[in-house]
Design a protein around this nucleic acid. Structure first.
Lengths: 207, 207
DNA sequence: ACCTGAACACCGTTCAAGT
DNA sequence: ACCTGAACACCGTTCAAGT
């Protein structure tokens, strides 16, 4: 929106086409869902020809990967904002991380779907996407390790414990967005999230 | 493959085009993944024109819904085969249901993705698909209720308890197929499944 | 070094016409 | 009642040509 940028916008060389295409892709997802994310539509929105994106992205998947990476960074940012000063007790902090995760999926369902859908066949082919998703996961692992240090969570590889927690959280998010929980209101979802939080911690066992 | 059917195959009227298109769609998913499931390719494989499917399916989504329904019926069949005679104790049976679920996802990743992907925007628009998915879920709810009757699982709405279990199982399946667990071998996955089984039952709590 | 225009092989979907 | 052929508006992707 800076005038310096506006001046360059309609020249032959865009100047910042790569980020502009990612922005356009995000806007398309927001408006039309994941199905609306096409290379041609993004190019149109950025005001360039259909062939221009190929100077910056090898193919459609590479643009999808860039959008997914941006999503992981945003999710990490929101999770990192949960009690950054360490005033919240570790177990309550773990619970709040889960809620932040579910709320991100709720607020940005299209973006979340791009992050976890089959849009990128293999994260390891996009190192910076892979790194961004690892960073998100590490936040969760660290929170569990903190609980272990306080004797609140049982012993064991915190990564293995984190997978279960992540799986349930991710499962809840996707069952809610695409599955049988589709029509659930946000209030009911919060209730269910509370129930699942209890379940993550105490399991199904009687007594 | 029956000769009676073969005779009719190349006549102007196919005769059983609807099921033939579903079969073709399944073969396409198996071979090319979910992206290969197109109406035109299914028509080609069934030996009819590109417009013919529209006599039997309103649009692409309707074919996807038929494929997804077939998937839920197959999954229900495999889960129902777990100790149908009631010789396995309820808690062990619940565990085996979870493993059967994960194994289905492992054996038919494309089909599983169609069942849980965004391919069908709203199950309630396809009553028989909705019914099939409810039937799968009911198997799990019943197994949990049986555990409750034996005092093995704590009190509470078995449907709410089942959601947590399902979410974790589904989350594990999708994280494995599309997410950070992508490159895990089946052996490691079985180990993780055991760990998660323990986690579903006992939670993260210390002691 | 970056972008355009035209082209090719695909889609989903519609509709008049054929059997 | 069911299927075909041709058409339209989209895709992803490539490539010679323009600036």
């Amino acid at each position: 929106m800076a005038t310096g940028r506006r001046r360059a916008r309609r020249s032959y060389h865009h100047g910042r086409l790569k980020p502009a295409l990612v922005e356009a892709a995000l806007a398309l997802i927001e408006r039309d869902g994941v199905g609306g994310l096409t290379l041609r539509a993004a190019a149109r929105r950025a005001g360039v020809s259909q062939a221009a994106p190929y100077r910056h992205f090898a193919d459609r998947e590479a643009l999808v990967a860039a959008v997914a990476e941006e999503g992981f960074r945003a999710l990490t940012r929101e999770m990192a904002a949960v009690s950054p000063d360490g005033t919240v007790p570790p177990l309550e902090r773990l619970r709040q991380l889960g809620l932040a995760y579910i709320r991100f999926a709720h607020a940005h369902p299209g973006h979340y779907r791009v992050m976890f859908g089959r849009g990128v066949a293999d994260f390891s082919r996009y190192p910076s996407l892979h790194g961004a998703s690892e960073e998100t996961f590490r936040l969760l692992v660290d929170a569990i390790a903190a609980c272990q240090r306080d004797g609140l969570v049982r012993a064991g590889d915190p990564r293995a414990l984190a997978f279960g927690t992540w799986a349930m959280t991710h499962g809840l998010a996707t069952l809610w967005m695409d599955g049988p929980l589709r029509h659930m209101t946000e209030g009911t979802l919060d209730e269910l999230a509370e129930e699942l939080t209890r379940q993550v911690f105490s399991g199904l066992a009687a007594r």
